[in-house]
Design a protein around this nucleic acid. Structure first.
Lengths: 175, 175
DNA sequence: TATTGTTATACTCTATAACTATA
DNA sequence: TATAGTTATAGAGTATAACAATA
């Protein structure tokens, strides 16, 4: 497994903070809006990938807030939905989450009644994770939201371009 | 300004931890390596962008370690290099760092003798940031490393494909 | 002996409030 | 009154060590 965690939320949307961008003083002397040369950084793949990821995640956070799901929660629920009986360790491996950090998430999802922890059929140390009926409904709705989100966040890209983008990204990180 | 921070390091490279992937037991029963369906997550732009960003950043962290620079430090040094006299607030705006969180970084770079804080020519509240001779040397080397890193981390992409990828990413997050 | 899930805990990153000095 | 830099601190995310139960 690579060092690519898909777990964290990176950052919650901040309450609007006072930036130094000139909004009310269109022509005032505003050192904070003097054009800064960022062209080199914008030539780097890592910089662009990170900015784009954060842009998408920002929208994701907003639209998933009604479900009470962070990206990592959505990822966990989705993995369970598509892999009934999956274990915590398997989720950790797939999302590169460290086991101690998953415990609280699983516990919270269980407490919300979204998942069930059943005894594993062949390994009594492990637990097979399943979605509850409510969890299934929530995950289905959230997945629909996540899918719709795609076209909105990449509204400046055609469907083909979006596919190309995702394909190129996969070729960067997949083995 | 969007909610896209280019500041944090996401994660330091971990010491090799014992994953559950089967390496020494090719055909053993290993629940951790049972194929898990992640196809849906891999169809999402945010997931792919984040995984790719983390893959690039992972290599970035390794290669920048000799310079003692995290991604955010490199970004700050690079902004100062390309914008001599830039202020802290301008760096904060460009990288979406919160001012209190930049203080320590600037202080550390100053203590290392990589940057100089001069009195701002027109605003006595502010400081114009400049690279020291040592800072210039380090930044130049680091920038060369960052540039070379591109082709290595995206070795499966042609030069044209890499350009296409970065262009598509910019169209996702740039206004 | 090794692995699953877990607790405890430390460290890093990010966020908010409030202060000073200057504008 | 608003802004630049700063301090202090709270909160979220990520890391390691170690444990009981089971393989």
């Amino acid at each position: 497994m690579s060092d690519a965690s898909v777990a964290n939320t990176l950052r919650r949307p901040r309450a609007a903070r006072k930036t130094s961008s000139a909004a009310a003083q269109p022509m005032a002397v505003d050192p904070g809006s003097v054009s800064i040369d960022t062209t080199y950084l914008e030539s780097l793949l890592g910089y662009n990938a990170r900015r784009a990821a954060l842009a998408v995640i920002g929208v994701f956070l907003q639209r998933m807030a009604p479900y009470g799901l962070r990206p990592v929660d959505f990822s966990v629920l989705t993995l369970i939905a598509h892999n009934p009986g999956i274990t915590s360790r398997q989720i950790c491996a797939a999302l590169d989450i460290l086991p101690p950090n998953l415990v609280g998430m699983i516990k919270a999802l269980d407490k919300r009644g979204l998942i069930e922890r059943r005894t594993h059929p062949t390994d009594r140390r492990a637990q097979g994770l399943h979605l509850s009926p409510e969890g299934k409904k929530l995950q289905k709705s959230a997945q629909g939201t996540a899918t719709k989100l795609e076209s909105d966040v990449a509204s400046r890209l055609s469907a083909d371009e979006l596919d190309t983008l995702k394909s190129l990204l996969r070729r960067v990180y997949l083995p």
